[in-house]
């Protein structure tokens, strides 16, 4: 039996409070040790001075950062029109792969082939093949723009992944939901649209958030076929100033966007796990 002491805490509560204090102390000590080691050891490396000058040059950062930010708007633009297209195409492919009608058999085959191909090829390769290949057909302006075909490469690749996530979401809706909806006299189509999809989509929001974050980063791959987005812009500055600091600047810009987004996706994921319990 636990006896409340003067403070009103039980034996168990006092024990756990002590454990927590101990854990916090250990964590703080080990963090301080690691930080101290980095701060003292890294500057002792032979190349430190040079690295500091060419990667962490404050003046260069201040000089180039506004231009980098400007270039980043191109990333945002490409992201902004690709993401909705990916969501729609991904969902359509997921639905195509789950159809049962014999008339739609070709669609099912196409959906399977599509996901196999675009998940099986490295993104950069798809960007090259589509981004250089299709304008190579000699299309007139503006149809030879790398923005269009580069975006298409991203859209195709990401749709393949997003479609698979949607499919797993559809599978995650318990079959009893479908039975209940059918028993009310709804058609298969109505059941999918009104009962299964809304739940499926909600179930995969955190996973799709992670795809969006990955997409945001992969937009930079388009720099290899032309668009001067933030990574390419940083490269231009590097050549111009013989200084790698602009790359660090670009990384900072990415982190400012992706870290909150990642935290938010993790939060959604944790909340979902809690709800499922």
């Amino acid at each position: 039996m636990t006896q409340p002491n003067a403070a009103g805490a039980t034996r168990r509560q006092r024990y756990e409070a002590a454990q927590r204090r101990r854990a916090a102390l250990i964590a703080a000590t080990s963090t301080a040790l690691v930080a101290a080691a980095i701060v003292t050891l890294v500057p002792m490396t032979p190349g430190w001075e040079k690295v500091q000058r060419s990667f962490f040059n404050y003046d260069t950062l201040v000089l180039t950062f506004p231009k980098l930010l400007e270039a980043f708007t191109i990333n945002v633009m490409i992201f902004a029109w690709s993401a909705p297209a990916i969501a729609v195409l991904g969902l359509l492919i997921a639905l195509a792969r789950d159809t049962k009608s014999p008339a739609l058999f070709p669609l099912r085959i196409f959906g399977a082939a599509f996901t196999d191909v675009f998940r099986g090829v490295p993104v950069i390769l798809t960007v090259y093949l589509i981004g250089f290949g299709i304008p190579g057909l000699g299309l007139p302006r503006p149809w030879n723009s790398p923005y269009i075909w580069g975006s298409l490469a991203l859209i195709l690749t990401y749709s393949a992944y997003v479609a698979e996530i949607f499919r797993s979401g559809i599978d995650s809706v318990h079959h009893s939901q479908r039975a209940a909806a059918l028993s009310l006299g709804l058609t298969e189509r109505q059941v999918t649209r009104d009962v299964v999809l809304p739940q499926a989509i909600r179930n995969v929001v955190p996973a799709q958030m992670n795809m969006l974050i990955a997409l945001q980063k992969d937009v930079s791959l388009l720099s290899f076929i032309g668009p001067v987005e933030v990574f390419r812009q940083a490269g231009v500055f590097k050549s111009l100033l013989a200084d790698f600091t602009p790359y660090v600047g670009a990384a900072i810009i990415f982190l400012v966007v992706t870290v909150p987004a990642t935290r938010y996706a993790d939060y959604l994921m944790a909340r979902q796990r809690r709800d499922r319990r």
Partner: peptide, 18 residues
Amino acid sequence: PQRVRSRIGMVFQSYNLF
């Protein structure tokens, strides 16, 4: 089956509300 099911109501052990 839709026409028949809409004439027969069914309630399940696990409720199965949406």
